[in-house]
Each structure stands twice: as C-alpha cells, then as structure tokens.
Design a protein around this nucleic acid. Structure first.
Lengths: 197, 197
DNA sequence: ACGCGACTGTTACCGGCGGTAACAGAGGAG
DNA sequence: CTCCTCTGTTACCGCCGGTAACAGTCGCGT
C-alpha cells in the first residue's frame, strides 16, 4: 500500500516548495504562488492542508521541532545553571541568525490567519517547555506561579532582544547572549545600585 | 479660514469611528466597514489617510502618545530605582488591562500591512525612550551597547509576560509586576543559586 | 475485455478585500 | 451667468483565499 507513502512524499514536496516561496516572498506568500512553485494548482494544496492556516501550521512544525530539540539539548546539557542558560540563549540566537526568514515566518506571521493563529502553538509549547525547565531548575513547587510568568518573560526578552539584534547588529552574538544572561542574573539591579553610589 | 479646522475635525471623527470598528471587529477591520461606521464612503478615508497603513498609523498615535506620557511620568517620578521600575511596569500593565483591544491592535496588528509595519514605530519609540531612560538611570556612556539591548529585552519581557497574563490571569496585577521587577533584580540567579545549595 | 468507482488534476468561478478613476453637486470669485 | 475648486458619490480594477464542477487515469471485480 504505497498510497499513503505517496501522499506523504507529495505532502513533503509541497512543504519544500512552500518553504522556498515563503523564504523568497516573506510571510505574505500567496497560495497561488506556492502552488505554482510546486508545479501544481491551488485545489491540490487545499486538499492536502485544508486552508492557508493548515499549510502554515504544517510548515511551522517542520522547523519548530528542530528548534525545540536544539533548545532542550542546550538546556539539559552539563555545566552550571548560568552556563546552561547562556548556552540555550546562544542556541536560540544562532538559529535565528542562520535562518532569519524562517524565524520571522514563525513568530510574526499571523497576518491573514483566520481566528486562532496556528503558529501561536509553537510559542505555547516553547513556553510550557521552558516553564517546566525553570520549575525543575529552581526546584519550585508545581503550583508556584513564578515558573509560568518567568518562562513567558524570559522568552519575550530573548525574542525581542534577538529581533532587535537581527536588525541593528550592534554587537557579536556571544556578547548579546552574555548581556542577556547578565540581565537575568540581576545585572540591571547591580548596575542601578552602583550608579546610585 | 475654518477650512483647515473643518478638515481636522472631520479627521478626528473618522478616527473615532475607526476606533469603534477596530475595537468591535479586531485588527482585521475593513476600510469599507470603517467608512460605513463613519457614515461616509471609502474614497473619503483614502483622501484623508492615503492608505490603510496611514489610517492605522494615525489611529496608533492617538493611543501611543497617552501611553508614552504615562510611562515617562512613572519612570521619572520619585522613589528608588526599583520602585520606579516597578511603578513603570505596573503602569504598562494597567493600561493593557484597561484597554486590551487597543493594546492588541497596537502591538500585534501588522497583518495586511504593506511593506513596513506602520505601528511598528510605536515599539521603536518606546524602545528608544526606554534606552535613554536606562542610559540615564545607570549613568552609562552614550556608546554603551547595553542600553539598547536591555531596553529591547525588558520591553519584550514585560510585553510577553503581560500578554500571557491577559490570557491566563493567574495572579494579581501587582503580583505580576513584582515578579517581573524581581526578575530584573536577579531573582532568577538567586533562586538558581539557592536551589543548587 | 469491459465497465465502474475512486482518486488526482484541471478550469473557472465566487465573494471580499485594498485601492482608484470618473463623474455629480455646491458654493465662492470674476 | 460662468467657471473652478472641493466634497462626495458610484462603479470599477486586480488580487486574494477558497470552492464547485468537470476531465483524465488507474486498478478492480465480474
């Protein structure tokens, strides 16, 4: 029964084509353009993915799985707590540096998405994963609210700083990672205390 | 010459109507719907604002100016550095709590925007303002890269944590503000050190 | 061998969007 | 009275996401 395998292979090739178009045209790639790139027509896309958000969701999974794996590896490898955090941040930065278009597609698509953003699930997963990591790292009680809050906060912090860095590139990747780690370890409070005597 | 005043008054009424529709239909409000709400037709909107991003930019300014003023006030009022930061974060949170639709429109519109996001300027301004504040607060040299990095990072941190809070509402506004301030003052590093002995 | 159903692919269309051209009335200046 | 500008309209364009309806093709049971 190669029929299912054929379907999967076809689906794969469609996703590869969609990837090409998204990286070329940005997040506003049209379904017709993707179909043309794949050498087929629109209804085939719709038969495979339902609608545009379905395609985007499938496209997102291709990348998020890799990214999540890489982050988990960085977070669970050895070293002090601070080293692990720094390494994880650097992993994230290296990914968005290597594939900025993919990153932009993942975090800032939404655009014409219907109702619930499909890609949003990625940030959710990442956030929950990070919350679990923090909870374990800090040996927090499961009901401690700080894990969730800090997971969202740290995620937003790294993401915003990474986005700005992609645009202005005013320091090396390693410097940025160090500054962010410092910030988490209270550098702002320290600098503030030092400035006021 | 009341002609200019008339134009401005008209423009104001159009913006009020646009505000209504945006808060009702979300960020995907159509130009036709806004025109209908204002009791006129599309070309008038286009004569006043050029295109959709122009309208959105004008609409954004109405709110960002208020928000920026409030944040500046909170940041420059008295108290210790920590108190000022906490108060500024709380100001931000209280604004997004009071007008979540407006907030969503400001930070996550983009959607069908052409080329450069018009609303993006708001985050830019906020970021620069915060960078200047940090630079002053910490008495940093003007060329110190940390001001820009940390401004973006802190902004993203508060924004992401605020967005999550709007959805799950798992703690009081004051608690959230305190947790975020703690985080900036090194609570994560401290908790990590405590957990590992 | 034949027909028949399932599947893949196509063309051609729909409604709605952002955006614009072209026309219709209203009021002041000569 | 005429012309000219300024405001408002209708009616249209091109593009998008999404779909209905039709055409070819392959494997299957009889």
């Amino acid at each position: 029964m190669t029929i299912a395998a054929d379907r999967d292979a076809r689906r794969e090739s469609l996703l590869v084509a969609a990837d090409l178009v998204v990286q070329r045209d940005g997040a506003s790639a049209s379904m017709a353009a993707i179909a043309a790139e794949a050498g087929i027509t629109k209804p085939i896309l719709y038969r495979h993915f339902g609608d545009k958000s379905g395609l985007y969701a499938a496209l997102a999974e291709r990348h998020t799985d890799r990214l999540l794996d890489a982050l988990v590896d960085a977070l669970t490898a050895g070293g002090t707590s601070r080293e692990r955090v720094h390494r994880t941040i650097d992993t994230y930065l290296s990914v968005i540096e290597a594939e900025p278009q993919v990153y932009r597609f993942l975090v800032e698509s939404e655009e014409a998405a219907p109702a619930k953003g499909p890609v949003r699930g990625f940030l959710r997963r990442l956030q929950e994963l990070l919350a679990a990591g923090i909870s374990h790292e800090l040996r927090l009680e499961p009901e401690d609210e700080r894990a969730g809050i800090w997971a969202a906060a740290i995620l937003g912090m790294v993401q915003a700083a990474g986005e700005r860095w992609l645009e202005v590139r005013d320091c090396s990747r390693d410097t940025l990672g160090s500054q962010l780690t410092d910030l988490l370890w209270g550098a702002y409070g320290l600098a503030s205390a030092a400035a006021h005597e």
